[in-house]
């Protein structure tokens, strides 16, 4: 009998405890957990894998506007082109070509249009070895001076690659197999007139849950 009483007592206490808990939950006495602060999503422009520039071959294959490559719309055919220099021996770029920024090399000695373009046929490029190259073959022109880089590019060590590291068709995904891999031409990334990459806006830095305290020694240039 004593046991029974004790059991009943425990059950009553438990019921009261549960009822109090239930009341507390329904009155939200404990409060709701703070919602996670929603961080802004990154701009989808930054997720794109396209190159910054498009080569002549790409423009042709995508049927883009090619007016800029029709030299003889303005220039006279069969006439040798003459360059103008100012009194400091700097090339004077005519107004028609004012979009071109000459900055190939830091030494300023490669500012002659006809180091690469053919002055007797503007639709051609001329490497120093006397070959005549079309605009589509600009990579070979670059390679005629930048030998080691060209060698690296051929091996896939320089420049962007995309697609498949696995060059065997059996090894690659059958579903979306669209060619083993793609190498980019020099001019897909570099502007041939000014090949050094211009500065770009970086993607946003990491967001912290709490305010970031400054690092005691933030990076400083040694120069």
């Amino acid at each position: 009998m004593n046991d029974n009483k004790q059991t009943r007592f425990i059950l009553v206490v438990l019921t009261i405890a549960f009822a109090l808990l239930a009341a507390a939950f329904s009155l939200d006495l404990f409060g709701k957990p703070a919602p996670v602060h929603q961080l802004p999503l990154v701009d989808t422009e930054l997720l794109k894998t396209e190159t910054w520039r498009r080569s002549y071959a790409d423009l042709v294959s995508s049927k883009a506007e090619l007016d800029a490559f029709d030299c003889y719309a303005c220039h006279e055919q069969g006439k040798k082109q003459v360059l103008k220099y100012d009194d400091k021996q700097q090339l004077v770029i005519p107004d028609e070509h004012s979009d071109i920024v000459m900055g190939h090399g830091t030494h300023g000695r490669n500012n002659n249009c006809f180091n690469c373009h053919d002055d007797s046929n503007l639709l051609q490029l001329q490497p120093r070895d006397g070959r005549a190259l079309k605009f589509e073959q600009s990579t070979m022109l670059c390679g005629s001076c930048h030998g080691p880089t060209y060698r690296d590019w051929e091996a896939g060590m320089h420049g962007r690659t995309s697609g498949y590291w696995n060059r065997t068709k059996e090894g690659a995904d059958k579903g979306d197999f669209d060619g083993p891999f793609k190498k980019q031409d020099c001019v897909n990334c570099h502007n041939p007139h000014s090949p050094k990459f211009p500065g770009r806006q970086p993607a946003p830095p990491p967001n912290y849950l709490r305010e970031k305290h400054d690092t005691p020694e933030s990076a400083q240039t040694s120069h």
């Binding site: 794109k48 894998t49 690659t161 995309s162 590291w165 696995n166 690659a172 891999f181 990459f197």
Partner: peptide, 19 residues
């Protein structure tokens, strides 16, 4: 599946190499 990682594909400078 034979493809390059995503970080390599997006690198605009061609700094990332995998294989």
């Amino acid at each position: 599946a034979g493809r390059y990682p995503a970080c390599l594909e997006v690198c605009p400078a061609g700094a990332r190499k995998f294989g």
